[in-house]
Design a protein around this nucleic acid. Structure first.
Lengths: 242, 242
DNA sequence: CAAAGGCATTGACCGAAATCAAGGCATTGG
DNA sequence: CCAATGCCTTGATTTCGGTCAATGCCTTTG
């Protein structure tokens, strides 16, 4: 199943007005008149975890705002080794403007709801609206910075630092308003241990051991394998390798 | 020393006409009239290896086309561990459009010649010329793809695969026209062993050992520590982990 | 030329993370 | 209720790459 289907169904303008309230999404870049036109050809959908949104072989035929949930972007080696190269949180924009030859996969990590637009419409809007292209450039620059930040983590941090950095990154993305002064926060992990391992360039076992370590050292609590409470953001940050 | 100085000196229009012939640079995106205007405020300069072009603390005040040589982009952890997060080859564009909070350093890896433009002029041109912004978006998307490709290398490849991948990447960037059918090529390494280690998330010693291994296995020859001849691109590719 | 310094190679040893293996704890379904 | 399955944890052992240390170039400089 792909995002493509149902994209030409009747639109839900309310949906896009909700997008507009968000800053990094597509709609926020458009003026209200354009928005109404675009809303008519948009469609909202909910995706189950594990469903592939962008496949290697297939051309991406739509663009979407991520309204809720987390999408993981992965790349694989021929023997099956896998690396997560990015996570898209709401309200990120999903889908490449202009075709790129690179092999990349997008898959719902959690349940995901999307607001999708057909490729042709978005490309027309880009041509007509410099503001939208400006918005895309800014998001792309942000993603580039995030990617480079993770290159440091992948290349130069220890397993313990990687896991601490990961938890901090998730906390900040789940709650962007997280006050740097507060010392505690709590969230649902959007990834399984296997996903975390693929994100950090580690094995499942190492991830598990490092989480156990943080737990027995009293920096975090974990319930039901997924719900994490950070009890000392400061101590966690001090273990993240700066 | 920074790129900033001399930026307001009298321009060298010929320089920018030479930029225009290249595809990924700034000038290629502009129409001839704009080009002449921009050329008047551009300046060409040559930078020695090791000179810092963009520093952490300092705001980037100019944008440049890399005319020749290689610039390395690095990020560091507080204890000094370093990671190279990107390499800019000619005719790449160097310098961030819009300020970004991220701490990144740019440094000449080899002797580098640049064609620089003052920040304000470029930003004005971006506002006036959607085509330039389009060009910037495309380059940024390319850099994002490259970064993600290296994330796979950093997170999931062995030391041997990393070094093989590195040599292939350099070969392709030094000679973009490299025929996939040819089996041999030769080039000057733009990086020291220490730089290669920082690029691959390894130590100098491991890089040296892997190069020695490739040499004794007959895949490459090395003269003067820097000049590399790949005698079997196929065998090198087969060791790069796909 | 000799001394010094920068860069690279090589060897011996060590340790962090991978691998291999067993078992726990949910949820699902017969 | 009892398999069966998926996900996670924990332990024992191995290994790849890091660390420490010595040496070998070149190039530079007095």
């Amino acid at each position: 199943m792909t995002v493509r289907q149902d994209v030409h169904s009747v639109g839900i303008p309310v949906l896009c007005q909700s997008c507009e309230a968000r800053h990094r999404g597509v709609c926020g870049a458009l003026d209200p008149d354009q928005l109404v036109g675009l809303a008519k050809i948009s469609s909202k959908q909910t995706i189950e975890p594990g469903v592939e949104l962008i496949g290697d072989a297939e051309t991406v035929d739509s663009y979407s705002n991520v309204l809720s949930g987390v999408v993981k972007l992965t790349k694989s080696l021929s023997d099956g080794r896998q690396q997560i190269v990015g996570l898209q949180f709401a309200p990120d924009f999903l889908g490449r403007p202009f075709k790129v030859e690179s092999a990349i996969n997008a898959e719902a990590a959690t349940a995901v709801s999307l607001c999708s637009f057909p490729r042709a419409s978005i490309e027309r809007m880009i041509r007509e609206s410099p503001e939208l292209e400006h918005r895309l450039l800014k998001q792309t620059l942000n993603e580039l910075d995030e990617a480079r930040e993770w290159m440091v983590t992948l290349g130069r941090k220890t397993a313990a630092e990687k896991v601490a950095s990961f938890l901090l990154m998730i906390a900040r993305n789940i709650d962007p308003a997280l006050d740097p002064a507060t010392n505690t926060t709590s969230f649902e992990l959007p990834l399984t241990r296997a996903d975390i391992a693929d994100f950090l360039g580690l094995t499942i076992e190492t991830v598990s051991r490092q989480l156990t370590r943080l737990r027995t050292d009293g920096l975090i609590r974990i319930e039901n394998n997924r719900h994490v409470t950070v009890t000392s953001l400061k101590r966690l940050a001090s273990r993240s390798g700066a």
